[in-house]
């Protein structure tokens, strides 16, 4: 999977771009309230940085960045964070996922926190599932016909 060692341009450009893509992913994640963006986009963008790294430097290098074992823990964690926010509002005496209960004095603030938490859950699940998909496809050996 790894490219030959003479692909200097690709390797250096990837090294420059991968962190920028990750930072951009985080920006999209946490700026989703104010501009276009949110958990779904941020998850895919964050995953694509790791995928780019894996395409250029090889699957093992990408697995060293984020081990699949961690990803398999993170994927359900995002769903649990989402559903957990709902359970929290239930415990605070409101309906499932009505974020007003998080800060009853300032319902708008409660909505803000709730949406942030939920979007973070979406982002974690989407990013880890996308990386897992890439690892699953790229890690499978080709069968000789």
């Amino acid at each position: 999977m790894a490219l030959q060692h003479d692909q200097v341009v690709l390797r250096i450009v990837t090294k420059l771009l991968a962190p920028l893509i990750m930072v951009f992913g985080l920006y999209v994640q946490f700026h989703g309230d104010f501009g276009p963006g949110g958990g779904f986009q941020a998850g895919v963008i964050f995953a694509s940085a790791v995928i780019l790294y894996g395409l250029v430097f090889g699957l093992d290098a990408a697995r060293a960045v984020i081990p699949p074992r961690t990803l398999r823990l993170l994927a359900p964690l995002g769903v649990l964070l989402y559903a957990g926010t709902g359970v929290l509002t239930l415990l605070l005496g409101e309906n499932f996922l009505s974020y007003n209960a998080i800060d009853p004095a300032h319902p708008a603030k409660g909505q803000h926190y709730g949406i942030l938490a939920v979007e973070l859950g979406v982002g974690i699940t989407v990013a880890s599932v996308m990386m897992l998909l890439f690892f699953a496809f790229a890690g499978r050996g080709k069968v000789k016909a």
Partner: peptide
Amino acid sequence: LTAIVVGVATTAVGLALVVRINE
């Protein structure tokens, strides 16, 4: 917005089945 991301996840399931069929 959500349908697009769900779409790529289901496409991945289809492609995984294709890989298994090929094997």
